[in-house]
Simulated scan of single mutants.
Amino acid sequence: MSADELGWVWISITAVIAVLLVIVVRLAVVAQHQRSRIAELEHSIEVASAVAAHPKKPEERLVGVVVNVTKDDADEVVRLVHTSCSQAGMPAPLIMASSAEDPGYLMTQRAVEAGADVVIAAGGDGTVRAVAATLAGSEVALGVVPLGTGNLFARNIGLPYQDLEACVDEAIHGQSHRVDTLHLRLQRPGGRTDEEVSLVIAGGGLDAEVMEDTRDVLKQRAGWLAYGEAGLRHVMGARKSVTVRLDDGEPATFRVRSVLLANCGSLQAGMVLVPSAKFDDGHMDTVLFTPRHALDWARILAKTALRFSSDIPVMKVRQARTTRVTMAEPMPFQIDGDPVGEVTAVHAEVVPGTLVVHGVKRAVEQPPQPALRELD
């Protein structure tokens, strides 16, 4: 299961239940907008801003690269990074391959110890998350060259993710921007606690179930549509009780099919699951899905595809700096598309501006939403 396919999971789940025509029309409009936006981004790259962002002399700058060598374009990215460093008069980059056992934590630490001022994550959202988790809290910047199918973090920060050369240029020479991370403490059945970091969306319930249960054979034959088959089998599953506390508010209990903690809100093909979720606003968006039947899922689809800003009863969205979710029974959980097993409670905290990222192109301020307790 690829870690950067979270967006397709949600799109496929809703698509098998509601009117597909809404999506088709919306995607046609968004595709044209996306092509225009990418062209504008590429045109706007200026050497002067890159120089101002990096006061070090070129010969003093070392670039580290953590690359997922299983991706089709991995060799091309390595070549592009070598060429860009050479042309800028920089030393040869430090290239390290991730592995199934370690998606990038140790490699990133080695790059930092070697003196790198930027570490490029060349892979999917799993590689990006591993590199980001190691760099968070330091002044070493994260560069992103997306090689996955979803590339959700790259999409949310506005990278021209379909142009490898432009992404390499942004990763090495792009302006620096500070983004938030979500620090997660996962309580496991039996009492063990694990510490994790999320950049995009973490969540428990339906999304984690689908990612754990998608059949590999069908995925190889049908691609992301395979998630629709798994979604169809799970979407009408029983709701479960969770108790949610935002910041210092009073806890509230809900029957949910899924609960999400979002640092970013955009998915593939221009779909926006959580419009208010921004990577640099100092808040996370807590999203509760409480559908009872197919009509409720159709309402969620319409809100997502048409970007309705108003609340609907079956999809509650509220912002906070800290969120505590306690499950009445163990619930499967995922982080940025990676299934991480069952949890009984999750404590999430936004760490504002803890990660320096190169090449961020989009940041939109949103006012905080009212507290969750006001929905009772």
Score class of each variant (00 low, 15 high):
G7A: 12
W8Q: 10
V9T: 12
A31C: 09
R37C: 04
I38Y: 08
H43W: 14
V51I: 15
E60P: 02
L62Q: 03
L62A: 03
V63H: 01
N68F: 04
D73G: 05
G89P: 06
P91C: 11
P93T: 13
P93W: 08
M96S: 12
A97W: 08
A97E: 15
A100F: 07
D102P: 02
R110Y: 07
V112S: 08
A116R: 01
D117F: 09
G126C: 10
V128W: 00
A130G: 06
G137V: 06
L142V: 07
V144I: 15
F153Y: 03
A154G: 01
Y161A: 13
E170Y: 08
I172W: 03
H173K: 14
R178Q: 09
H183R: 15
Q187C: 09
G191W: 08
T193V: 15
D194N: 11
S198N: 05
L199V: 08
L206G: 00
L206D: 04
D207Y: 06
V210G: 00
T214G: 03
A222I: 13
G223S: 11
A226R: 03
G228F: 02
E229F: 11
G231S: 10
K240N: 05
T243W: 05
D247M: 07
G249W: 05
E250M: 13
P251I: 07
P251M: 11
R255P: 01
S258I: 03
N263Y: 06
C264V: 10
S266F: 08
Q268Y: 04
A277N: 02
F279C: 09
D285W: 00
F289C: 11
D296C: 05
L301C: 04
L306P: 02
V314M: 12
M315N: 00
A320S: 15
R324G: 01
M327L: 14
A328C: 08
M331C: 13
F333E: 01
I335W: 00
D336V: 02
P339R: 13
P339Q: 09
A345D: 04
H347P: 00
V350E: 02
E365Y: 15
Q369R: 15
